[in-house]
Simulated assay, not measured.
Amino acid sequence: MDYRPCLNLRQTESAIKLIKDTFQNNIAEALHLQRVSAPLYVMPSSGLNDNLTGVERPVSFDVPDIPGEEAQIVHSLAKWKRLALKRYGFKPGEGLYTDMNAIRRDETLDALHSLYVDQWDWEKILDKKDRNEGTLKETVRTIYAVVKKTAQKVLAAYPQLGQGFELPEKITFITAQELEDRYPGSTAKEREDAFAREAKAYFLMKIGWPLRSGAPHDGRAPDYDDWNLNGDILLYHPLLDCAFEISSMGIRVDEQTLLRQLKASGCEERAKLHFHQELLAGRLPCTIGGGIGQSRLCMFMLGQIHIGQSHVSIWPEAMMERMAEMGVELL
Rank of each mutant, 00 (worst) to 15 (best):
L273K: 09
I207N: 03
S46C: 06
K148N: 04
L18E: 04
K170T: 14
P5H: 11
K20E: 15
A201G: 09
L109P: 00
T108E: 14
S213N: 15
S14H: 12
Y183K: 07
A111Y: 06
D226N: 12
E166P: 00
G214C: 11
K137N: 13
D99G: 03
S265I: 02
Q34M: 14
E69V: 13
A188K: 11
P64Q: 11
G54W: 00
D65Y: 15
I288T: 10
T257C: 02
L211I: 11
R10L: 12
A264G: 13
G293L: 04
R57T: 15
L258N: 05
E138F: 05
I314A: 10
G134P: 03
Y88R: 15
R10K: 14
V59M: 10
E268C: 11
L7Y: 08
K137D: 14
K272A: 15
E278L: 15
W80M: 05
A194S: 13
P285Q: 09
G185V: 08
D181W: 06
G250V: 02
E329Y: 04
H274M: 09
E321S: 13
A71T: 03
A15D: 08
L262K: 06
D130H: 12
K86I: 05
A196C: 04
A157Y: 01
E166M: 06
P39L: 12
G282I: 09
A243F: 07
L330W: 03
S14R: 14
K91N: 13
D181T: 09
L155A: 05
R197I: 09
L279A: 10
I246Y: 01
I19Q: 04
I73F: 07
I171G: 02
A176M: 07
L234G: 01
D193W: 00
G293K: 00
L33N: 01
A215N: 14
P159V: 09
A145Y: 00
G93D: 03
L258W: 06
E255F: 03
E180K: 10
G93N: 08
P39K: 09
T257L: 01
A201D: 08
M249D: 07
Q152Y: 08
D226Q: 04
C298H: 00
N51A: 13
T172G: 00
E123I: 00
Y144T: 06
P92W: 07
I288H: 01
P67T: 12
D50H: 09
V146A: 07
G162T: 11
G290K: 00
V154H: 00
Q256R: 14
A194Y: 02
P238C: 06
R322A: 15
Q177E: 15
Q34C: 12
L136P: 05
D254V: 05
G282Q: 10
L330M: 12
E133Y: 09
E329H: 10
G54Q: 02
G303S: 13
K128H: 12
G219N: 11
E13T: 12
L77F: 05
D254L: 04
V147A: 01
V328R: 05
V146H: 01
S46Y: 00
M326E: 13
